[in-house]
Amino acid sequence: MNMHSPEHTKEAGFDLTPMIDVVLLLIIFFAFTAQFNKSLATPVELPKQKADARPDTSSKQSIVIDITREGTFRVAGRDVPLDVLTQMVAADVHRAGDSANLEVIVRADRRGTAAPLNALASELTRVGVKTWKLATEVNAS
């Protein structure tokens, strides 16, 4: 004697279609954002030297300056002439109040000459920057 009626075996289910729609939308958003961020970083071959690990200095204002092998200065993926770059750093120093609160990180291509590095150092010193950091590629060994 079958005591169960057909309605008792009905499965409860959630409709996941809207969630999948949202997830796919997120994927598209992050795909576009990732491409945008990637274009900001200038690919340079950094010196392979032993160095300190990059500390967490999120509390400090920082500016990252890329120097290509050809000696071009780039900030956030854009070519910037040295005089404009100097003005930018001077404004950052003014905003930070003290140059000690501003972290200048220089990512220079190891194959280029030190001439643009020296020119940058002279200009940074002129606008009151007292320290800088040269980015290196940490050796695996």
Partner: peptide, 30 residues
């Protein structure tokens, strides 16, 4: 369907991630 999406996400991030070497810093005064 959920697992499909998660695997798709995993595949996307694996392909899209560029393996950059870790960077260090040489601090000096100017």
């Amino acid at each position: 369907a959920f697992i499909d999406v998660v695997l798709f996400l995993l595949l996307y991030f694996v392909v899209a991630t560029s393996v950059n070497p870790p960077e260090g810093e040489l601090g000096s005064a100017l």
